[in-house]
């Protein structure tokens, strides 16, 4: 019983600590951030495994490390030289299409590692790469040659409308009021929309979103017999090969 309670406390404290330290901790780890994660997990494990040591022996180090981590992050924000000291700086491994062998040796990066990282970025041919930069978190950033990069609308002189992310309207039956207000709509508008799909209540909806062109994606909750086909209003095409998706008229008919 004690073990369960101690584990729960340490889990909660570690989660809060990770949350306080910010999204970067979970995403792209710098070396000092990786150290923090390792130490905190070790401290939490010690507290769980050994009943004979007080919980404070784990909690205080976790709090200390969290404070230190945030302090270092704040100093990093203000001081470029400190950032250089703590994080280092990114290094080119391919520049102007040329593999920098000396730089790779300095980074202790072998050719196989480089090829592997390039493939992970979608580049199976080194000849297609103009620049490759080894970031401070160990990730490789790649810029392809101009004639090998994906075509963009600007290349074809296309006039493209400004786009914004789709806004969620309903998640798991719960209406996202703020998003509804941002769109300039209200519950009445939403009810009308749902009624057009023969849906009586937002509580029946698993997910509903609207994009900047007014195209709606709506999926009802499954009732134990597989996920129902989503409703797509306004979109000209359904996903290729999905076999799913229907218009509101089809949804009404079903």
């Amino acid at each position: 019983m004690l073990l369960i309670i101690r584990t729960a406390i340490l889990y909660a404290v570690t989660m809060v600590s990770m949350r306080v330290m910010g999204k970067r901790q979970i995403g792209q780890l710098q070396p000092f951030e990786l150290v923090v994660i390792l130490i905190i997990s070790e401290m939490a494990t010690m507290g769980v495994q050994s009943n004979g040591t007080p919980l404070l022996n784990s909690l205080l180090p976790i709090i200390t490390i969290t404070v230190l981590q945030i302090a270092i992050a704040l100093i990093n924000l203000k001081s470029e030289s400190f950032r250089l000291l703590v994080c280092g700086k990114p290094s080119f491994v391919i520049r102007n299409g040329e593999i920098l062998e000396e730089q790779m040796r300095r980074l202790r990066l072998n050719t196989n590692d480089l090829l592997e990282q390039l493939r992970a970025k979608g580049y199976f041919n080194v000849a297609e790469v103009e620049f490759a930069l080894m970031e401070t978190n160990g990730q490789l950033s790649v810029m392809p040659r101009a004639d090998k990069r994906p075509v963009q609308p600007a290349d074809l002189a296309l006039q493209i409308q400004h786009e914004t992310p789709a806004l969620t309207l309903i998640i798991d039956g719960k209406v996202q009021e703020k998003h509804l207000q941002n769109l300039g709509h209200d519950q009445h508008w939403l009810q009308k929309k749902l009624a057009a799909y023969s849906i009586s209540s937002p509580a029946d909806v698993f997910f509903m979103s609207i994009d900047n062109l007014g195209h709606i994606f709506c999926q009802l909750k499954s009732r134990g017999n597989g996920s129902p086909a989503p409703i797509r209003e306004g979109a000209q095409t359904a996903p290729a090969g999905s076999g799913h998706g229907c218009t509101p008229a089809q949804a009404n008919h079903s």
Partner: peptide
């Protein structure tokens, strides 16, 4: 935000040290 965060860190540090002492 950063100033408040820094102040918060200082307060937590002082409280923790005071608790330990």
């Amino acid at each position: 935000y950063n100033a408040r965060l820094s102040l918060g860190l200082i307060v937590i540090t002082v409280l923790t040290l005071a608790f330990c002492w």
